[in-house]
């Protein structure tokens, strides 16, 4: 049997396989270099950048481990758009696979400005982060409102010819509604989930463990909740869905794919296993071969109810 076809397209971005790295997990790609063959993956999404540098949340614990998961409240610390394009992007492009920039802002115009500035660069696509639970202004404030999400997507659409991916928050009542609004506004794909708003408390001090009070939950704890949201969204939109929510092994990834995801992103698992993405990819290939499935796309959304 010839090797199964794992290619996926997100607008004009063609990926050789469906495995991506999720935004924020490995910064701009520098620090993990050498710990796995990241160039083998379909795409690498870099840490969300904003127009101006952000120092992020105040010092104190920005992450805490919780049962089968972790909370983070980094607060979108980033070097800012200019330094990103000048200092970070060139090295990331050397990975030799699709590099996706993730952008956020406090106002619609800020998203558009970032997108415009990235239009002339080598990024293969732009992810709009309207789902960060860890900043007071912007971020999730857009993502919890279908109208505001559509406004951001439309403004970014007008600012760039690159494929755009709207990254959705699960912290809403109707995630499919937000997804549809983004699709109508011109998003080429939607990705989900960002983290679930969450809190952990130290019972001795009666204070939250995170310095910021609350944060976002990722990890195995959220996977079934994420799979279900991917399923709901995939039922509602035509554009490709990128699924995530602790994909740790190939079976986890296949769950998302069968629920309706065309591609998947590996996040928190990278902290345990820097090569988790490669391991997931190899496992997906093995699965396709052992089940005699010629094309990955044959099983996307194949869940039978």
């Amino acid at each position: 049997m010839t090797a199964p076809d794992t290619a996926v397209s997100i607008g004009s971005m063609s990926m050789k396989n469906p495995v991506m790295i999720a935004s924020g997990i490995f910064g701009y790609g520098d620090e993990f270099r050498g710990l796995a063959e990241y160039g083998e993956l379909g795409a690498l999404v870099l840490k969300t950048v904003t127009r101006q540098p952000r120092e992020g949340n105040p010092p104190g614990h920005r992450t805490v481990e919780t049962p089968a998961g972790m909370l983070n409240a980094i607060g979108l610390e980033n070097v800012g758009l200019e330094a990103f394009v000048r200092d970070k992007l060139p090295a990331a492009l050397e990975y030799g696979t699709n590099i996706v920039a993730s952008i956020a802002g406090e106002a619609v115009e800020e998203f558009a400005e970032c997108a415009r500035a990235l239009d002339g660069t080598g990024v293969a696509a732009i992810e709009i982060n309207i789902s960060c639970p860890n900043v007071k202004k912007g971020g999730m404030a857009f993502g919890v409102d279908a109208g505001a999400s559509a406004e951001v997507a439309a403004a970014v659409r007008a600012a760039t010819g690159k494929p755009i991916i709207a990254k959705l928050t699960p912290n809403v009542t109707d995630i499919a509604g937000v997804a549809v609004a983004c699709e109508r506004a011109g998003a080429d794909a939607v990705s989900l989930v960002n983290t679930f708003s969450a809190m952990a408390i130290d019972v001795e001090s009666r204070r939250p463990l995170l310095a910021a009070g609350s944060g976002g939950l990722s990890g195995p704890a959220i996977r079934p909740a994420a799979v279900y949201r991917v399923y709901q969204v995939a039922q509602a939109v035509e554009v490709p869905v990128i699924g995530m929510g602790v994909i740790w092994n190939a079976s986890d990834a296949l769950e998302f794919i069968i629920a309706g995801a065309s591609a998947v992103a590996v996040g928190t698992a990278l902290y345990a296993d820097p090569a988790a993405g490669n391991r997931v990819l190899n496992g997906i290939r093995d699965y396709l071969e052992s089940h005699s499935i010629a094309r990955l796309s044959d099983i996307v959304g194949s869940v039978e109810l």
Partner: peptide, 17 residues
Amino acid sequence: EERMACGLGACRSCVVP
């Protein structure tokens, strides 16, 4: 010491002022 996730400098979990 500070709580870590990546341990590599990428995730910005373990910052001090």
